[in-house]
């Protein structure tokens, strides 16, 4: 069965996403990284479904997809406003509140 290697791949992708999230300063890239992480989770569910021969994993994938769509739309709205107000997408520039 391929489910276990698929899970390993999912973990690797998740890790890559996490590294991207931490290493990129541009909010857009961070969002991309998050997409990768969500995808990794989706892959893990599919792998689980494959392991148990169930459709539940696939269904979960569908819901993750929905989330990703909804979330990206909100996120991009915020990104647009950010670029209007701050004139940058550098995540480290948004640190007016701290302490």
């Amino acid at each position: 069965m391929l489910s276990t290697p698929a899970l390993v791949l999912a973990m690797m992708l998740f890790g890559l996403g996490l590294i991207g999230l931490l290493s990129r300063r541009n909010v857009l890239y961070m969002l991309l990284s998050l997409e990768i992480m969500l995808n990794a989770a989706a892959l893990a569910f599919i792998a689980g479904g494959a392991r148990w021969g169930q459709v539940d994993g696939e269904i979960m994938f569908l819901f993750i997809l929905t989330l990703a769509a909804a979330e990206v739309s909100v996120a991009l709205g915020i990104v647009l406003q950010l670029s209007y107000r701050f004139r940058t997408l550098d995540a480290d520039a948004f640190c007016e509140m701290k302490g």
Binding site: L34, L38, A44, G48, V79, F94
Partner: peptide, 25 residues
């Protein structure tokens, strides 16, 4: 605040989902 919440809450979702996936697996 929104962008911080956004990024971190999606991170939370991703971690949560991955966890759920592992449980399911």
């Amino acid at each position: 605040a929104a962008v911080k919440y956004l990024l971190l809450s999606i991170t939370a979702s991703a971690i949560l989902l991955f966890g759920l996936a592992l449980l399911y697996f």
